[in-house]
Design a binder for these strands. Sequence first.
RNA 1: GCCGAAGUGGCGGAAUUGGUAGACGCGCUGGACUCAAAAUCCAGUAUGGCUCACCCCAUGUGCCGGUUCGAGUCCGGCCUUCGGUACCA
Length: 823
Amino acid sequence: MRYPHAEIESKWQGFWEEKQVYKTDFSNIDKKLYHLNMFIYPSGAKLHTGHWYHYGPSDSWARYKRLRGYNVFEPMGYDAFGLPAENNAIKTGIHPLENTLQNIKDIKVQLKKIGCMYDWNTELMTCVPEYYKWNQWLFLQLYKKGLAYRKKAPVNWCPNDQTVLANEQVHDGKCERCGTEVIQKNLSQWFFKITEYAEELLQGLDTINWPDKTKLMQRNWIGKSIGAEVDFKVYLPLGTVDGFNEVIKIFTTRPDTLFGATYMVLAPEHPLVDKLTTRELKTKVEEYKESIKSLTEIERTSTVKEKTGVFTGAFAINPVNNKKIPIWIADYVLLTYGTGAIMAVPGQDERDWEFAEKFNLPIIRTVQPPDDFTGKAYLEDGPAINSEFLNGLFVEDAKKKINHWLEDNRIGKATVNYRLRDWLISRQRYWGTPIPIIHCEKCGEITVSEDELPVELPYDVDFKLGGESPLARNEKFINVKCPNCNGSAKRDPDTMDTFVDSSWYYFRFLNPKFSEGIFDKSVSDNWVPVDMYVGGAEHATMHLLYARFIHKFLRDLGLAKGDEPFQTLVHQGTITNAGAKMSKSKGNVVNPDLFTSKFGSDVFRLYLMFMGPYDMGGDWSDKGISGTDRFVNRVYDLFNEFKDLQNETTVKEKYDLNSLSDQDKFVYRKVNQTLHKVGEEINHFRFNTAIASLMELLNNFKDISTCSKEIQLYALQRLAIMVSPLAPHLGEECWSLLGNSTSIFEKPFWYQVDESALIEDTVSIAVQVNGKLRATIDAPLNSEQEAVKKLIFNEEKVTRHTAEKTIVKEIYVKNKIYNIVVK
RNA sequence: GCCGAAGUGGCGGAAUUGGUAGACGCGCUGGACUCAAAAUCCAGUAUGGCUCACCCCAUGUGCCGGUUCGAGUCCGGCCUUCGGUACCA
């Protein structure tokens, strides 16, 4: 009989919903397990195969944990603000709110079809005032602590989206979302001071169970480097105006090479450049700065590009030897890193060497390279040379000594620098959380008071592109009385990056209707951190870093207990189609409905899991789905064959192997071996091998009709339970076919493995001659070498290769291998 | 360039601490059932050689070399693909 998937799925989904099987009891915290999936962005493209691949297997893991006695909380919600809804509005005229709500409605229907254990009582969306009010509250807390601030900064501007993009959102100089070439623009922007937590964000990585790859990416992103800051005085020729006492501060990781600094380089945008440049070179410098401006960030920072730069005419004094060194500007020095100025030490830096060679600047080695060294700049360790009081010291010691010297002479100090930059949260867009700030000409920046929150996003706006942002153009919204002086003032026209929404949503899930605070601390104290977090690796340096930062901030406010939000992290792999990531714009989205309508949800879920390792993903192909379809049908047929078996016989928890017939023993062993294996595999997200071992077990049930009824029942009960996390509807149906009136997930349990049944009586031992397999023999378990030896030298296959040769050595590994070495 | 991951049959992929390479599935071939087809079931399926009949022999986990009784697994040197990053001083 064909497995009637549509009927069975709606039956069990209806049952789970009606009985509220997946409603979480938050008061039961003994074996609490917060299982979170990155929530979904409700786009018009609806659910595609990639979403299924993320949510289906992840739910199977959670179901397994539930069967093992955990009180699992698995929520789902919508990351509902963001650019695409607004872009869609610009294109179609449909309001982002209407559009988003409709998408959510559609997506929810699709989500339910997967058959996950989502607790729909805690569903949330970020685009409603009840949620985004707390973004604003969070903003105010950050503001109070000086961790939210505004500054003018060159930002990435997408001319198409008319919005600012974070560095992380620019790929290959193009807008991550629409692919338009990004240009630079100077705007007043809001930032969150994530850099304040740089060190802790780095240290905390050692305490969490995340993929090494992801931790490494965060480490690199934070980019800690230890070095020193050194002040270089600007050289004042005779006759220069007195009072010009500028100092150029540089950052270096190699203070030990200070004696080799033969010139300086400032970033072209460095504020001192205009002051320093001599009259004769003004035009040249201006020309250079202009030429840089037209370059995109990518062209400018390309490593293959030849070095460019110009001399400013000014000189600085190297503080260690009072030598006069020229000051240049060059685009390979970035204003945004360190101090925007470097001392150039061509002897020990490849970039400086290249630059020095091109512009004929002097090169002094300050570390002695080995005799056979043939390269240019020498970056390795060695004794210092040409460095007076540092001479002879190796790099580490030289660094220590020069740092002391710098501090003693008040010229500089040891310091630590991070690559991490502050989090730019402003978006000149409509569809997001309004920033709760009022700008008054008299009083300046005024915060909206907490009891005035939320600052509601107005519905009626002109969200057409161009010029000012939609909120800035909305008179009703933007014009407001100053809370301080009651004069006319304006609201901040920006909205927040949606990563703000997702930086704390896991707290909110625990009680999304809570109105007395950002979240219900009485629940979150027991349920945060998230025990298992599953989501895409593309968030490694954005969402996952921001969320850690905000968690630490909330902890400092006394709202969270631990230091980290996500204890264990797993990335599902990416499913590509024809080698490319699935996206609506590429038109290569695979619609799961095609398969679920034909095969059913469980078959599709099984197939996605069976394709390969979960964290690897892979290129989509529907070849092979018939394999899991056959499996499901065979299982279903088997249970129909033994329908109501529970009414015919009773079964024990455990059987003595010696009391069983050969066939019973065989099945009993295979069942227990599989039970052991399947649990282990699911626990480690290895669904493909879990399913393979279930298929193997099913193959071993070929002659199950010759088993005793007891063992038949023993086997089928366990099969139903093992199937249920992976194919939940099928599992429930099989369980009920046996004659059960309860649901597996309503009264979850897992069978104990009979350890004594894991071991076989006989083992097959590989016999090798000189490492080559010549025969395999069966021997009783744990046979001694002498006994095995007798067996193998009776084998013609073996003696053929040992005859007329000298046996040099024999190696026996119990139950595994017998290797004879001959000459 | 740097950092990271991965290269195994026609295909997706298995393989504890080094110990029988190719589990499981797809596909394919042959057979059973059928008037026929689909579905299902049974058997076979790494490559080459021998009379593929049965044994058997040789080769084989990206390439070259090494360690070892024994290497997909460990070591050294490459090649290719995919991710991350882009002069970070």
